[in-house]
Design a protein around this nucleic acid. Structure first.
Lengths: 186, 186
DNA sequence: GTCTATATCAAGATAGAC
DNA sequence: GTCTATCTTGATATAGAC
């Protein structure tokens, strides 16, 4: 990476994300991306030989962004046992639902196409767990908090979360309490 | 419902589930179902005028089964504050991954097709929360445990759970402990 | 109530010009 | 590196026979 051709690639991914946001994952087609980007289908296929490669690129970008977002949150938090898990919760539940939706869309599209393509995420999750427990947070506690965070984000991304604003705050507060409580109990 | 034509409908849904299990959600087509069921495409379309209606039927069945499974577990458990949540955790994480996968597939296919179709699940989840907290379990605690359960199931259904058998047991044990601890703290 | 046959259409992918 | 044109496939839907 680093060539100037990257910009075209990146621009195409931008447009693909737009399409997903506006039309939904099921309507992400080369045609739609071509129309919106000004690039022809053939042009697109130079950069992404098939749809799978485009979806992978979208997923990769989402992973990168998620990690960046988490690191940013982390840098704003004081040191301590719960620093990593709190960064995960807060960055995972940030209020930019649109952005989350894009990642989820690539995710679902890949899951439908070939679940095997999600394998890299397993490795990713493993690394996350390592980081979360690095400072002494109990493994089980870290896992439960991380899983609940991801479950809530999933529900919200799919607009099927039944929780109102106040209930959501209470849930987030509970996650925080569980992260800290563990520290004391140690 | 209750007509004898129901059996044909049910059989078609059975086959559709089979296809999803064997080929993946992305390859669920009328053609594939027709080939496997002996019923022609035209015959299928009599029962399900379009793919969306088939997916909805699959999702409905999955919801029914999940509820049944939870109620069954519930009946095996002693009374107590944590009875409902424990039934949810245990039935949600039961080891029949194949069955879970079918529900998830219909779920993802609907999410890709039109996320709005998942709206009924919001109501469903609301009802679940009501049941979980009926016996005095704190709302936030119930939500966190339920969300973590669902997050773990999602990861497992997509074969992206990084946890081995022993780690999984520890996570489940932690969920149980959180359900009971809450009781004591009350 | 279930089938055959067929129409329509859109998507992914290819080949080769510029 | 990007384009046009074209090929192939397969999914959805319709009409009407049995």
């Amino acid at each position: 990476m680093g060539r100037h051709s990257d910009s075209a690639r990146e621009r195409i991914i931008d447009v693909a994300e737009q399409v997903v946001i506006e039309l939904g994952a099921g309507h992400l087609t080369f045609d739609a991306v071509a129309a919106k980007s000004g690039v022809s289908r053939g042009g697109l296929l130079y950069h992404f030989p098939n749809k799978e490669s485009l979806l992978k690129a979208m997923l990769d970008r989402h992973i990168e962004r998620s990690t960046e977002s988490r690191m940013k949150k982390r840098s704003e938090l004081p040191e301590g046992v719960e620093r990593e898990i709190v960064a995960h919760v807060l960055s995972g539940l940030e209020r930019d639902v649109r952005r989350q939706r894009v990642g989820a869309a690539a995710f679902f599209a890949l899951a439908a196409h070939d679940p095997g393509l999600l394998a890299p995420l397993k490795e990713q999750y493993r690394k996350l767990m390592d980081q979360l427990t690095r400072n002494g947070l109990r493994f089980e506690r870290a896992a439960v908090i991380a899983l609940a965070t991801d479950g809530l984000r999933l529900a919200e991304v799919l607009s099927m979360s039944p929780f109102d604003k106040e209930e959501r705050s209470r849930i987030v507060a509970e996650l925080m309490a569980l992260a800290k409580e563990n520290k004391r109990a140690k």
